[in-house]
């Protein structure tokens, strides 16, 4: 089978000024992966092609890269799934949101710093037991999905918040934090939540689901971040804009059935938060001039009482 691998190249050490594209036209098997194709190029065409790989079985996490714009493991991405009779070309780039070293190799330092920052080990208060720590089966079953993370960096690569703010802890580290918060043996929940509640932590996720989409291991980082928010609100960390937003949003739906875009920001910030109100005012004014101010009085849906009842029935347990 024929394929044209269009690869992003760049070797700053050898004095190259900027990244460029190089196309390699090769023959591969029907079963070949993108990684097989790249290794073939490195072995038979151009030995200088820089890439990382090890297990070739989606276990070690070294071969993450962007293929046709999306972060994947090159070793579990089949070429035949990406080409057709009309289109034989595949784009290969290094992962995003990390500093480039050479060709498809990036620097993982910032990623590891963030993983370290969440203190990824079980912290206990009690004196160590005589034998092993016992954790229930159910609690470990809940953790199995998130423990499946192989630190490949695919979620970090495609995170839309990291793309605009490198200080964000990011999906991988936050999912890792969840792994310890949900561990019954860990006693440091309060401190952990306090730290994660800070700016650049759990509330900065924009819920875009990129991490969920690209994770090759089904870790569901965003789902874990939402659970962190749950934990934080339950533990009484309610004084962030994010927590208030969730609270106010929920109250508005509970009482009216539908959202009211006028009161949502006003109540989230608090009416007496003068600086934020002053910021909102011109935007509201502009909207009003275009004849589209959201109604100041709550509009309820017919039968909104039924919604209130559902809220009361379906309380979180």
């Amino acid at each position: 089978m024929h394929v044209d691998l269009n690869i992003a190249r760049f070797d700053p050490e050898s004095g190259e000024k900027k990244p460029y594209r190089e196309e390699f036209n090769i023959e591969v098997d029907e079963t070949s992966t993108v990684l097989d194709g790249l290794i073939k190029i490195r072995e038979e065409v151009d030995g200088t092609l820089g890439l990382r790989c090890s297990c070739r079985s989606a276990i070690c996490g070294s071969c993450a890269m962007r293929v046709n714009g999306k972060a994947v493991l090159a070793c579990n991405t089949k070429i035949s799934d990406l080409v057709s009779d009309e289109n034989k070309s595949i784009n290969v780039e290094p992962v995003g949101n990390m500093k480039l070293i050479k060709d498809l190799i990036v620097e993982f330092d910032t990623h590891w710093q963030k993983i370290k920052a969440i203190e990824p080990w079980v912290k206990t208060d009690a004196p160590p037991p005589e034998a092993e720590y016992i954790a229930s089966n159910e609690s470990m079953m809940e953790l199995i999905g998130v423990m499946g993370c192989i630190q490949c960096g695919a979620c970090v690569s495609d995170c839309t918040v990291l793309a605009v703010d490198e200080s964000f802890l990011g999906p991988a580290a936050l999912a890792k934090a969840y792994r310890f918060l949900a561990d019954p043996r860990d006693d440091a929940n309060n401190q952990r939540l306090k730290d994660l509640n800070e700016p650049a932590g759990m509330w900065d996720c924009t819920r875009c689901m990129q991490c969920v989409e690209v994770c090759p291991k089904g870790v569901d980082p965003m789902g874990r971040i939402m659970k962190l928010r749950d934990f934080a609100m339950e533990a009484g960390y309610k004084n962030t804009t994010g927590a208030r937003h969730a609270e106010v949003f929920s109250d508005i739906i509970k009482n009216n059935g539908v959202l009211n875009e006028f009161w949502l920001p006003v109540k989230t910030f608090g009416m007496f938060n003068i600086p934020e109100m002053l910021k909102l005012a011109p935007i509201g004014l502009k909207a009003m001039m275009r004849g589209k101010m959201p109604p100041i009085f709550y509009e309820k849906i017919p039968g909104s009482k039924n919604i209130t009842k559902l809220f009361e029935k379906t309380k979180v347990v």
Partner: peptide, 14 residues
Amino acid sequence: GASCTGSGVLQEKN
């Protein structure tokens, strides 16, 4: 008489 979908925000909580 249909309500808001919850827009993902409500789902965050419950």
